[in-house]
Structures are given as structure tokens and as C-alpha cells.
Design a protein around this nucleic acid. Structure first.
Lengths: 143, 143
DNA sequence: CTAGGTGCAAAAGGTTTGCGGTTAA
DNA sequence: TTAACCGCAAACCTTTTGCACCTAG
């Protein structure tokens, strides 16, 4: 069973419980995000979504992404410049980005999970740890 | 001795060792950043820099910020939308941002420092942990 | 019937770039 | 002398907004 087959059925109820309607565009955008486990920009999502739905517009892609983020199916990653990146991996993890080629990869913390002191009554909604460096390929090229 | 007086003398050598020239604009932009310990946007830096240097341009502010970041005097913070934020606190710390008012605050980790498994020969250049939530003020207003 | 969603096009931010003139090494 | 830097303005890229039309509840 593919990741797409496994995760797609959730979209309907997830949208509904957050007060969003289930639309073909939102379903399609979500399936496009699930197909590749990379961290595409909104522009890349748009281009991929046009395969199979040629009439979809950029504004609709942003609308869909917003709904998917708000109903907890997709995360927005904003480390470094170049616009938002999308991520469908909702497990606790952090991100590695290459400063040269811009590639993004998921990293899982092995040992301690950081303890962050927040003021009373403040509960973190979003938490993101990102590491910037040269990926092995770019590091090799540089030499 | 103020933070400005304490840190300003470093700028000359720091720029030099990274191959940048020491210019009045860079000095001024750095002093502006040191004066307030908030996390201004490039736009805000530009507006503050114009006090005392009315002819400075936006492009020059970006140039100065780029040089200051590259020579290790200033950090760029990119959590959430709304453009880059600047930070002169070079100690290891993470950032809190309010999802409502956009305010940013430094947070220091108390206990464990996260251990992130990176591939061999990959050394992290940048590392950023950011937490998004409602600040106490905005949390109170929402009720 | 009405709020929400879509596509299109234009606008709005934020950042970068090209260019002529200036300045420090 | 010349490479780096400055200010200005235009270009660029990403994201948001306004509007007319459409559709699910």
C-alpha cells in the first residue's frame, strides 16, 4: 500500500473537522504532495498539480495549501530564503537544508529532545529545528 | 558600558578577516542593530538607519546586512513569513515568535541540547530552533 | 439561498540586480 | 589603479487580494 493510498482517506474528515470543504483541487494538491517525499516550493506544487488538473491556478494552490496546513495534514517549512516549502511528514522531526543546492531532507533527533522554557500559559503551536550546511554532494564539489 | 560600545570595536577586524571593507554604512547599520535587542525586519533596519544617515538606500542596507551576516556579527532569522529578521545575539539560543502580532523573542534552552545526526563530513553552519505560539498579550486578547 | 471555493488578473511585499559614479587598499 | 562599495531605480519572485462565477450544504 503506497503512502498516497494510506494517507488520502484521511483528507475528507480532516478538512471537515476544521470547517473546510472537501474539493477535487484540495484532494489533488494533497495527493501531489504525498507522491514525492521532497519539500517542494508552492511553485513546484503548482507545476506538479497541473499534471492531471491543467486548469488549476496558483491562487487555488495557495488556498489548498493553506487549508491543508490548517487542518494538520501538511506542514510549512520556512528555513532559509526562497519561499515556503511544504512537508507531509507530520512526525516530530527537523530539517536539513543545503546552503548551496537548496535541497531539503528530514532528520530525526536521536537523543535528547530539547526542553524549551516558555512563559506560563503559552503553548507552542509550531516548532521547527533546521540545520543549514553543505550536503555531501555539494561539499565534495566545492573541493 | 553599553552593548553598542562593547561590541562595536569588533566590527572593523571582523569585516576585514572576511574580506569586506569597513564602511560608514556598515558601521552605522551594525550600531542600529545593536541599539535595540529586538528582531527587526530589513525594512525596519532601513528606517532606523535613516536617522543619522538620511541618504542610505535600501540596497545598501541589504548589502550591509549581507556583509554583517557573512562575517559572523549578525544572524538571519527566517521562521514564519514576513521576510528576514535580524538578530545580533550570537550566543546559542532559539526564537519564539507570536503568530498573531509577529513579535520575536530569544529563548535559551535550559536542559538538553539537541543531538542531531548528520552524515559524516557534514558540519552544520547554521542551526535554528523556532517556536510559534501566541504571546501572553495576544493569548489574553483572544479570550 | 448563502457561505465558501475557484480561476483570473492585478496588486502588494520583500529582495535582487544593473548602472554610473565614488572611495578605500 | 582597480576592485569593492554606494545610491537610485527598475526588475524579480513569491504571495495576497479583488472580482465574477460556480457549487455544496
Amino acid at each position: 500500500m503506497s503512502l498516497v493510498e494510506k494517507k488520502m482517506p484521511r483528507i475528507n474528515e480532516r478538512l471537515a473537522t476544521s470547517g473546510f470543504r472537501f474539493t477535487p483541487q484540495r484532494e489533488h494538491v494533497y495527493s501531489v504532495l504525498l507522491e514525492e517525499r521532497d519539500h517542494p516550493t508552492a511553485e513546484q506544487v503548482f507545476l506538479r498539480a497541473k499534471n492531471g488538473m491543467p486548469d488549476i491556478s496558483m491562487a487555488t494552490v495557495y488556498n489548498c495549501l493553506d487549508a491543508l496546513v490548517k487542518c494538520g495534514l501538511v506542514k510549512q517549512v520556512t528555513a532559509d530564503r526562497g519561499g515556503m516549502r511544504l512537508c507531509t511528514n507530520m512526525h516530530e522531526h527537523c530539517h536539513f537544508y543545503c546552503e548551496r543546492c537548496g535541497g531539503r531532507y528530514d532528520i530525526y533527533l536521536t537523543r535528547a529532545r530539547p526542553r524549551v522554557p516558555l512563559p506560563r500559559r503559552v503553548r507552542a503551536h509550531h516548532c521547527e529545528l533546521s540545520i543549514g550546511a553543505l550536503c555531501p554532494d555539494c561539499g565534495a564539489k566545492r573541493k
